[in-house]
């Protein structure tokens, strides 16, 4: 019996690497949430190895990658589509929550606000200069207070009087929290206050001049935190919906995009197969000394064969590869190498 095709979505972010498999109806069949731990290549391979235990190459109908290491992931996997996180998140949310108008997303090191109209992104913003109020900070504070990140949210919900904490800068937020602790405020009030400060920071940084309308969705790793959800609901005055797969929405979105792209292109995928989990993939980098730009050129090799190069401003190294490729493989997707 031929099983229905599945689509693989991979989101390689700063903190986590997520892999999902969706079926042709868009239902999530498999969701892996792995810590990237600064080793994106190995983490992708680890995830792939995990999936290889249960699935085979011919079941995969398409691959999409997103996240800050999307180009790297696309080279390793042979992706059909490489898209930024904003598009991926928007696609996933509008599929899982039809009619969604506002997406609040807080991940490991970035936060995004995406506004949609008729299922299309109409406006977006990303945190630019500061990471106060992202997942990493909450993680850090939970560790400092020696409570698990899961308990953190529940503790916040128990509070009936949230303390006001300065949330503009994460270092000052921490000193303010210590100060409030020394004053004798209860832990739950402080934690609730922190959630409110982060929400205030989010809305001030990203939501300025924008009209946030319901239905609203909150996704990303931090959405698991009920305290943050409550703080958002309090600030915005609307119920906030948290999708079941809120942690891996970027990956779901890129899987949906992969499905769309492959169907559009006639049903063929570039997927290189689960065997890539075993391949010897080496990332090299060197500093090009031909001009004072001193670009750091990155080169990906698979079993001694050059897969991709990027990082050079002038395009010299990148183009050298593209030319070499177009000579050997005429239909090579030169595009993926250059992003």
């Amino acid at each position: 019996m031929v099983k229905d095709l599945l689509y693989l979505g991979v989101d390689v972010g700063s903190v986590s690497t997520n892999l999902v498999l969706i079926d042709k109806w868009g239902d999530v069949k498999e969701a892996l949430y792995l810590r990237t731990q600064g080793r994106p290549l190995e983490t992708i391979q680890r995830g792939l190895a995990n999936l290889a235990e249960r699935y085979e190459d011919h079941q995969i109908g398409g691959v999409g990658t997103t996240g800050s290491a999307r180009t790297l992931a696309s080279v390793v996997l042979g992706a059909d589509v490489v898209k930024n996180e904003i598009t991926a998140h928007a696609v996933a949310a509008s599929r899982l929550v039809p009619g969604v108008r506002t997406i609040l997303e807080i991940g490991g090191q970035d936060s995004k606000l995406i506004l949609l109209k008729d299922g299309v992104v109409s406006d977006f913003s990303m945190n630019t200069v500061c990471a106060a109020g992202t997942g990493s900070f909450l993680d850090q504070q939970a560790a400092r207070l020696q409570i698990s990140i899961e308990e953190f949210g529940e503790l916040a919900v128990k509070s009936n009087h949230a303390v006001r904490i300065a949330g503009r800068c994460s270092v000052f937020a921490e000193s303010d929290m210590i100060h409030k602790q020394q004053m004798g405020h209860s832990l739950s009030d402080i934690v609730a206050g922190l959630c409110e400060a982060l929400v205030r920071n989010f809305l001030n940084n990203l939501g300025k001049g924008k009209k946030l309308e319901a239905p609203m969705v909150f996704q990303g790793g931090v959405a698991a935190n009920v305290g943050m959800r409550q703080a958002f609901e309090k600030a915005l005055g609307h119920e906030i919906f948290i999708p079941e797969h809120h942690k891996v929405m970027g990956a779901v979105g890129s899987a949906l995009l992969a499905q769309e792209t492959v169907n559009h292109a006639g049903g063929f995928t570039q997927f290189k197969g689960f065997s890539m989990a075993e391949e010897q993939i080496v990332a090299n980098s060197w500093e090009c000394g031909d001009c004072p730009n001193l670009c750091e050129v990155i080169e990906i090799q698979e079993a001694g064969q050059l897969l991709a190069r990027w990082g050079d401003r002038c395009g010299k190294w990148e183009n050298a590869l593209a030319v070499a490729r177009s000579e050997t493989v005429p239909e090579a997707q030169v595009q993926t190498a250059g992003q």
Partner: peptide, 28 residues
Amino acid sequence: YVDEQTGEAGLMTRLEAFVDMLERRKRI
């Protein structure tokens, strides 16, 4: 806004998302 701290990756993500958004809008 750009300054010496501007990360190339963050800038590209924004540009790409903006182009995506405009393309989808136009298609509709």
